[in-house]
Amino acid sequence: MAFIEIIFYVFSSILVLTSLGVILFKNPVYSAISLILSFITSAALWLLLQAEFLAIVLILVYVGAVMVLFLFVVMMLNISDVIRTSRFNKIAPFALFIGLIIVGELITLIWIRSDQFSMTSSPISVLDTSVGNTTLLGTALFTDYLYSFEIAGFILLLAIVVSISLTLRRREGLKRQIVSEQVNIDPTKRMKLVDLKSEKN
């Protein structure tokens, strides 16, 4: 067994265990944290396939942004007493059914794939390893897809403008920081020394 395969099986088993943890933990915070661990292990699996960009993006976007947001929500809402019910409620059979369908689809997919394309070696050797795929992706984005890329940038700017204009409510009597006054403050006028007569015993 090659070294790379040992790493693969280690990460895969961690992935399976943490995914089970997501649904089996009673405490939603534990579930969220094991989901984070499962994301990180999947990122490691992607690294094994030399898809380093996907790995980085998975960690940055899902772990860095989405899951942190998730944890915030879980911690801010006091849902601990709501969730204390049975793990398998009425939805469980339905969820099991959907899960079985997905598993079936995956098995057929792998079946067809192994029938039509004989996987001779590990997919690592298929890729051109001389240039990293981050470089390739960056080059494509800034040359072939420059126009679309710039439009996407403007869509993000638009999203910022719209969301701020929808949530910002101007009201009277708001206490704001006035930078110019803070900078121009005279230190000598800041403190007043007062002589206090000491008490005599």
Partner: peptide
């Protein structure tokens, strides 16, 4: 771009 700005 058009749709998002119209929602806004």
């Amino acid at each position: 771009t058009l749709a998002l700005s119209l929602y806004g």
